[in-house]
Computed example of a mutant assay.
Amino acid sequence: MTFRMPPEWAPHERTWMAWPGPNPTFTDDRELAEARAAWAAVARAVRRYEPVTMVVGPGQSEGARELLGAEVEIVERELDDAWMRDIGPTFVTDGEGGLAAVDWVFNGWGGQGWARWEHDSKIARHVADLAGVPVLPSALVNEGGAIHVDGEGTVLLTDTVQLGAGRNPEWTREQVEAEIHARLGTSKAIWLPHGLTGDYGRYGTQGHVDIVAAFARPGVVLVHSQKDPAHPDHERSRTYAEILRGRTDARGRTLEVVEVPAPTVLKDEDGEWVDYSYINHYLCNGGVVLCTFDDPNDEIAAGIFRRLFPERTVTPVDARTIFAGGGGIHCITQQQPKV
């Protein structure tokens, strides 16, 4: 039986999320409260379009319910952190009504010193059990934010993630591709050399692709574009666009690249380069939940998404608090395809 990962724009049964709890990502009560408010805003936005299930730590349901409202389903399981895209399963379908969950090895984004993953490494199986689907285990250290598919055989990957020393030091590129293709039903991998500069900071993922590039439909890929030469991502984003413009997908189509301008802000309050990106959006049934940053380019990005997805409603959600923790809207959501 052959399974494949449907593209994000395919119909969803529901969205899975994980609730922020006390952990090293949120260092004090204020940060935790801000994170919970931000996660809740995303959950409520997604719930406009499809069901949402929030996994929360034991004993945290009451507080979560106050922020989430009655329409978001809540289930309790042990958690370390709150990035469901990475700790949860990657759902795949067999084309005949069957659904399964790929369980990648999760090791705290390459075994980073601040990270904990005793419980998060088991969340994919918990979610699969709650969804009532079989688990397809993989020996590859990988996260959901490190892959993006077009649904027709093409997958985007990053050298510093799947081939990074903290994840799969003994694997060759060919071995990684073989495992990815076997689990996702893809046949062609397009590798980018690295992620955005800010993604290599304290809470960074070391190069996740879902903040850099994402398919909008087969043959069309969105790419982060930093226009300001003062930011080190200026050259990086030019490299991404050049690589992708020169590539074909699994069906032999030359990729059309749509550059999405980065927000105008360059550094955060601590003087660190930001990796704010509109690429880290989430497609749900009839909607686009779009990261915004109280920035002049928010509306420019929204206009790009409205043109690309005329059948979907663009819903903006302020993502600055989420990015401060190391990710964005795509990073905290995980789709379960409808079969």
Rank of each mutant, 00 (worst) to 15 (best):
M1W: 09
M1I: 09
R4A: 14
R4V: 11
P7N: 11
W9Q: 13
H12R: 05
H12D: 06
R14I: 00
T15A: 08
T15E: 03
W16M: 10
P22M: 08
P22E: 12
T27I: 14
T27A: 10
D29P: 07
A35W: 09
R36F: 13
A43S: 14
V46D: 02
V46C: 12
R47M: 10
R48W: 06
V56E: 02
P58I: 01
Q60S: 14
E66D: 10
E66Q: 13
V72H: 06
D80Q: 00
R85E: 03
I87D: 03
F91K: 09
T93R: 10
T93C: 04
T93M: 07
G98V: 00
L99P: 07
A101D: 00
D103K: 12
W104C: 01
F106T: 05
N107D: 06
W109E: 01
G110R: 10
H119K: 12
A124V: 04
R125M: 04
R125C: 02
D129W: 11
V141R: 03
N142F: 15
G145Y: 00
A146K: 02
H148F: 08
H148C: 04
V149C: 08
E152R: 14
T154G: 07
L156P: 06
L156K: 05
D159P: 03
L163T: 02
R167G: 02
N168A: 11
P169T: 07
E170P: 02
E170I: 02
V176R: 07
E177H: 01
E177C: 01
L184F: 10
A189L: 12
P193K: 06
H194I: 14
H194F: 13
G195S: 03
L196T: 01
G198F: 05
G198I: 04
D199R: 11
R202I: 08
Y203M: 04
G204L: 00
G204T: 04
Q206C: 15
H208E: 05
H208L: 07
H208N: 08
V209I: 05
D210Y: 01
D210I: 02
R217E: 15
P218M: 12
V223W: 07
V223M: 12
S225K: 13
A230Y: 08
D233G: 01
E235K: 13
R238Y: 09
T239P: 04
Y240N: 02
I243Q: 04
D249T: 01
A250K: 06
L255Q: 07
E256P: 13
E256R: 14
V260I: 11
A262P: 09
A262D: 12
P263Y: 00
T264E: 13
V274S: 00
I279D: 13
N280E: 11
N285I: 01
N285Y: 03
N285D: 12
G287H: 05
V289H: 11
P296L: 05
P296Q: 12
A302V: 08
G303L: 15
T313E: 14
V314R: 02
A319R: 08
T321G: 14
I322N: 03
A324Y: 11
A324Q: 06
A324G: 10
G325R: 09
G326P: 06
G328A: 03
G328H: 06
G328S: 11
H330W: 10
C331V: 03
I332A: 10
I332V: 13
K338L: 15
V339F: 08
